[in-house]
């Protein structure tokens, strides 16, 4: 096993509700006036799923109405299918949900994933670059849709040092910074800039995480 190998996410469930009950729609943040169908996904990696949900909004007329990480991550899941996150997309008809789920699963299986930051696989990093934001993450980040964004996640100490490195490495600005602990005890940051700047920031971030993982104690 070597560094920066992808850790492929496992999609644990993909389900649809063609005509959801209005009460259910409302309680999960959907609008019964505009939404009738739901698509539900659970996965053992939360941040790749947020990216994949956003990807779905670029392929179909769907809205991400619900997306929440579960406490302490997939190693402490409440059940075999719980994983680390439940994401819910809503649309006016089942065909849109179908198209959205297809894009979502494609993104999880072929694009967004964590990477190993050390040889033993005990530290994970998510240095993901989104070339063009869909309307879900753009709303969450307060950026215009179509902006490039670096979506950076690592464990607390690695994330702190790596974020500093990333901000200094390229002409990017912090759209949002989530200090530790997240629900899954990670820390993350969303950096915006042009695509090249986002890529440079993601590279610097991953490199710094690897460096911290290799030499955690500067006092020795």
């Amino acid at each position: 096993m070597s560094i920066l190998e992808p850790i492929p996410p496992t999609v644990l469930s993909v389900r649809r509700i063609h005509a959801a009950h209005p009460s259910l729609l409302r309680s999960y943040g959907a609008d019964p006036e505009r939404h009738a169908s739901l698509g539900l996904v659970t996965c053992d990696q939360d941040d790749p799923t947020y990216v994949a949900l956003d990807e779905a909004t670029k392929h179909a007329k769907v809205d991400v109405v619900f997306a929440k990480s579960f406490y302490a991550g997939s190693a402490h899941a409440s059940g075999r299918l719980s994983g680390e996150i439940l994401g819910v997309i809503a649309a006016a008809d089942p065909d849109e949900i179908e198209e959205g789920l297809r894009a979502l699963v494609r993104c999880l299986e072929h694009d967004a994933c964590f990477y190993r930051a050390d040889e033993k696989g005990t530290v994970a990093v998510f240095p993901h670059v989104i070339a063009s934001l869909g309307h879900y993450l753009s709303r969450e980040a307060g950026l215009p849709a179509g902006t490039s964004m670096a979506y950076l996640v690592a464990p607390p100490v690695e994330a702190t040092i790596a974020l500093d490195a990333a901000l200094k490495a390229a002409d990017v600005r912090a759209a949002k910074i989530f200090p530790p602990p997240s629900e899954t005890n990670f820390a993350s940051a969303w950096l915006a800039g042009d695509l090249v700047a986002c890529e440079a920031a993601a590279l610097a971030y991953a490199e710094a995480v690897v460096e911290v993982a290799r030499r955690p104690r500067e006092d020795r």
Binding site: S2, I3, L4, E5, P6, P8, E109, H110, D111, A112, C113, Y115, P127, H128, V129, A131, E199, A202, L203, A206, E207, V210
Partner: peptide, 25 residues
């Protein structure tokens, strides 16, 4: 292919991990 994966391949080469990554799905 994932653009982030391509970026990580560049970084791995820079950090001295020359062995190829497992093939993507």
């Amino acid at each position: 292919m994932s653009s982030t994966r391509a970026l990580m391949q560049v970084l791995r080469a820079r950090l001295g991990a020359a062995d190829p990554l497992p093939p993507p799905a």
